[in-house]
């Protein structure tokens, strides 16, 4: 089966600073793949470079056979890729409902969109607060909103950048349960995490990013059992 998404020999720089070096990633349709790495490894850079933020220096990023490096940011956003960004980036002065409608294809979803009802089913908390401004939500609720917003376009590929960051263990558990449900519906997921334990248990396969370079790859269980990974990301038990 051909890849839904593939990154080949990707180099990304911020001015003189090289953040990614010769990165290769491939994801097949329906897979759950994770990328783990320490602070500053370049995880967010990889996700943002799909959208040309910043534009890669070398290499190619293909999604459904289309070369993304040639497209403008908003064109990538309309191809069926949705991002749950680092720091959630919800539109704080808009209501929850408006935030979700922004996520719909072409940003034109309306109130009776069936996908909206589905997102409310996944996150009942969001429905309770649909007319509240997003800025008034707690961190966990904002994370749910960011995920819900990304789901609104029924993406073929869902990208998540550290959805567990700063959340209580119980909330993280809840979010991962929901991600399981989303994955079961057939959405391909690429999850970037520092929380290696959760991420590797959740994913089929994983990559380990160290200083902008992929150091290790394997199935979730293989990486969980790998002594290097255990030492660096799982507190060495």
């Amino acid at each position: 089966m051909s890849n839904l998404f593939e990154v080949r020999n990707l180099d990304v720089c911020y001015g003189p600073v090289q953040a990614l070096r010769d990165v290769n990633v491939e994801i097949k349709k329906g897979e759950i793949v994770t990328l783990i790495g320490a602070n500053g490894a370049g995880k967010s850079t990889l996700l943002m470079s799909l959208f040309g933020q910043p534009k890669p220096k070398n290499g190619s990023i293909r999604f459904k056979g289309e070369e993304l490096t040639r497209l403008a940011t908003h064109q990538v956003g309309n191809l069926g890729i949705a991002l749950v960004p680092e720091g959630r980036r919800v539109f704080s002065s808009m209501t929850i409902e408006e935030n979700l409608m922004m996520g719909g294809a072409g940003c034109t979803a309306d109130k009776d969109d069936p996908v909206l009802a589905h997102v409310y089913e996944l996150f009942p908390r969001l429905k309770e607060r649909q007319h509240q401004r997003a800025g008034t939500l707690s961190g966990g609720e904002q994370q749910m909103l960011a995920i819900g917003r990304a789901l609104m376009s029924r993406p073929d590929l869902l990208l998540l950048d550290e959805p567990s960051l700063g959340l209580a263990p119980l909330v993280i558990k809840k979010i991962f349960e929901t991600l399981e449900m989303i994955a079961k519906e057939g959405t391909t997921i690429f999850l970037v995490e520092q929380n290696a334990n959760y991420a590797l248990k959740f994913a089929d396969r994983g990559y380990v990013l160290v200083n902008g370079n992929i150091k290790l790859t394997g199935s979730g269980d293989e990486l969980l059992a790998d002594p290097e990974v255990r030492k660096a990301y799982l507190g060495g038990h």
Binding site: Q53, H74, V76, G77, L83, C107, S153
Partner: peptide, 24 residues
């Protein structure tokens, strides 16, 4: 309107708005 939401989203976070597919 949807147009107005796009304006307000662009105003608040232009990068995120374009990631959502808005031609900012």
């Amino acid at each position: 309107t949807a147009y107005g939401r796009k304006c307000r989203a662009t105003q608040q976070d232009r990068t995120m708005a374009s990631i959502l597919g808005i031609n900012t």
